[in-house]
């Protein structure tokens, strides 16, 4: 009893010290933020920090993992504290494809010093790119170029990480998880995935057109394998240059990417493009 009481008190203190000071652990957030772009899952976890975790599949994280992740289960934060100090069990520490992301609340890590972070994921897909280029006489050339590009991407990623680590408010406001998420899977949904991947293919210079109030909406159609079949302008921007840049983005995207974890049925999405966040 005494022991339990002590543990509870300790937990409360720890929560106060760490848990209620979300800023204290802010280095972790950036990592998560970036990873939003990575793997969509069939059923993304419950979303924003303010969202109530679904009553259903919650607490014992490992349990909820539909994936065959054998190495993970050992990932109970700490064996002792489960009782009550933690009213909401962290949604799930386990099956993160590439990052320690899924933690919705800062508390878990507060007490969980020994958290066995999940970086050693046997990630479902190592690379989002489906490099299926036909090997030709210039195969060597291609791989050389590819390496160049990967190096560049790595460098960019690192840069972004560094930048994020330096920002304050940004990390805290970032949505954690997917709004429509049910909290069963770690990772993000297709919406978030598209939101993060499509811009990589969108090049648009403010010097193309003086107007910054341009906006166009395109519907994109995927087949059951996640391959982009077609696109259709729902609304054009009025600027040929702007619309052309979107077509190039969609075509470029469709060459490189398929919807990961395709929903096994045809799907479509409406994508609205504008320049609201462009810094000139």
């Amino acid at each position: 009893m005494v022991f339990v009481s002590f543990a509870l008190h300790l937990a409360v203190v720890l929560i106060f010290v760490f848990g209620l000071l979300p800023q204290g652990r802010r280095e972790l957030r950036p990592v998560y933020y970036i990873d939003l772009a990575s793997m969509p899952v069939a059923d993304p976890q419950a979303g924003r920090p303010d969202a109530r975790p679904e009553p259903g599949p919650k607490a014992p994280a490992p349990a909820a993992v539909p994936r065959p992740e054998p190495p993970k289960p050992a990932n109970k934060p700490e064996p002792k504290v489960e009782p009550k100090p933690i009213p909401k069990p962290e949604v799930k520490p386990p099956p993160t494809p590439t990052k320690p992301a899924p933690v919705t609340k800062p508390e878990p890590k507060a007490e969980a010093k020994p958290v066995p972070k999940a970086e050693t994921k046997p990630a479902p897909k190592p690379a989002p790119k489906t490099e299926t280029k036909p090997a030709e006489s210039y195969q060597d050339t291609l791989s050389a170029i590819d390496k160049l590009r990967r190096d560049k991407e790595m460098a960019e990623l690192k840069e972004k990480l560094a930048a994020l680590a330096g920002t304050d408010g940004r990390g805290t406001d970032a949505p954690l998880g997917e709004m429509g998420g049910k909290g069963k899977d770690a990772g993000v949904g297709h919406y978030t995935w598209l939101e993060n991947v499509i811009p990589k293919y969108w090049n648009y210079s403010p010097y193309l057109n003086e107007r910054l109030d341009l906006e166009a909406t395109i519907k994109i159609f995927f087949d059951r394998d996640g391959k982009l079949l077609d696109y259709q302008f729902i609304k054009k921007s009025g600027s040929d240059q702007f619309d052309q840049s979107l077509i190039r983005a969609i075509i470029g995207f469709s060459r490189d990417q398929t919807l990961p974890n395709p929903p096994k049925e045809r799907s479509n999405f409406e994508v609205k493009f504008n320049l609201k966040d462009m810094k000139k």
């Binding site: 598209l194 499509i198 811009p199 090049n203 648009y204 210079s205 999405f269 409406e270 994508v271």
Partner: peptide, 13 residues
């Protein structure tokens, strides 16, 4: 449910 992309990934071609 609509995806909104509020800035190009790159501002140069």
């Amino acid at each position: 449910a609509q995806i909104e992309i509020r800035a190009p990934g790159q501002q140069t071609l």
